[in-house]
């Protein structure tokens, strides 16, 4: 009696897993009409050309932007924090923002890596023969690219936050200095 019960459970779990996989596959394809599939196959070359250009221009953007964001952290934030610490001043505010900035920068690097991988995967798909798979891969890359953009917004927000933290520090520093002189 035990064996059939186990078999039923295993069969039940397998059925659930298979239906989840089937649902995922069908949901990936559901947004595509026959016209779209035909359009992808017909315009395959021009779409691939556009994607190749985007691939290259985004790589350049990653290198140039990444360089500037890296420099903001190492050549400005870190150095100012070190100077505050060297003078025995409270750098809690600026340090907290720098930490958040570093975390966001790491997320940006990782998200860009994911996006680049997914775009490369889309480029590797034969869009003439497999328009559905190509569409799915492109959509995944599109979602990842939006994530990279949100990382950029967050980095810019951290840059503004650091500026505010420096302002707060200066106000506090001037107040304490004035009190000490009195």
């Amino acid at each position: 009696m035990k064996l059939p019960a186990r078999l039923i459970i295993v069969g039940f779990v397998a059925a659930i897993l298979l239906s989840v996989v089937a649902f995922r596959d069908s949901s990936a394809q559901v947004a595509l009409s026959d016209e779209q599939l035909k359009a992808i196959s017909t315009n395959c070359l021009s779409i691939k050309g556009t994607l190749n250009q985007l691939h290259a221009s985004d790589a350049l953007l990653r290198v140039n932007r990444g360089q500037i964001y890296e420099a903001m952290g190492t050549q400005l934030m870190d150095r100012f924090n070190s100077r505050l610490a060297g003078n025995g001043l409270d750098a809690t505010g600026t340090l907290a923002v720098t930490k958040s900035y570093r975390t966001t920068l790491d997320t940006f690097r990782s998200d860009y890596q994911t996006y680049e991988h997914q775009l490369s995967m889309a480029l590797a798909v034969d869009c003439k023969a497999e328009p559905g798979a190509f569409y799915t891969a492109t959509e995944q890359a599109r979602t990842s690219r939006a994530k990279v953009h949100s990382d950029i917004i967050e980095l810019n927000q951290d840059i503004d936050d650091y500026r505010s933290a420096v302002n707060d520090f200066l106000i506090n520093f001037l107040r304490v200095s004035a009190e000490a002189q009195q």
Binding site: A31, A39, N43, S46, I68, M72, A141, A146
Partner: peptide
């Protein structure tokens, strides 16, 4: 430096949108 950083809205736009890629929605 912050002005320079924010001058370019990197990875903005939606170039992977099906409409942009000419296979419609």
């Amino acid at each position: 430096q912050a002005t320079k950083v924010k001058a370019v809205d990197a990875f903005n736009g939606d170039p992977l949108n099906p409409e942009v890629l000419e296979f419609g929605t």
